[in-house]
Amino acid sequence: MGACTVSPEHPHVAVTSEDRARFEALVNEHLDSLYGSALRLTRNRTAAEDLIQDTFLKAWRSFRTFQTGTNARAWLYKILMNAYIDSYRKSSRAPELVDHEDVGDFYLYAKAQESDEYRKAGDPEEILLSKIMDADVKSALEQVPEPFRAAVILADLEEFSYREIAGILDIPIGTVMSRLYRGRRHLQRLLWDYAKRAGYVNGEQSNASSSTSP
């Protein structure tokens, strides 16, 4: 109704300083979290920075069609994920989809319960968590193959709902769930390996400390 309504036949209305100010506010509000996700996705600072520039360039171009009041964060993440998937397809990287045997949903919990060492030491779950605390969790997450890693990042780090993730990735909710759960199972298995490596202070694993001594 107001003077601000842009009719679709006239998309080339001049950009106002208000538009710029609104867009800058969006950049400031969401840059850190988008950058963090870009880093976990690309696993590389330069690639993450390129991805972010690409994302905001595309976001600015379609900013006119973005309605204030709708979910800006989900809108930006959709652009980020599209740009990421595009760059990913273009690169000659070998497909990451090397899927190992699947494990159950509660792999780590089961591993903690099975461990005689943890059980003897008291609360096995807490001991395992403290070992994971000492491990390189970022690297473990970055080892989760695509497309499962993206689902874990969007759900577990960015806390988008299943419905929002379905919109961001343009996939059905059922696919969101299967990717997410598969991603979590991958992550748990990786965390177990990382925690084992990080946690050895006693010589339980003989070959871990028996490197060449002069």
């Binding site: 963090g36 509660f106 903690a112 968590l129 994971i132 970022k138 780090l157 965390l191």
Partner: peptide, 17 residues
């Protein structure tokens, strides 16, 4: 356990600037 694990992963993987 799952809740604690999720929080731990968040605390280690979020907060990039």
């Amino acid at each position: 356990f799952e809740v604690k694990l999720r929080k731990l992963v968040q605390s280690k993987c979020r907060g990039e600037r």
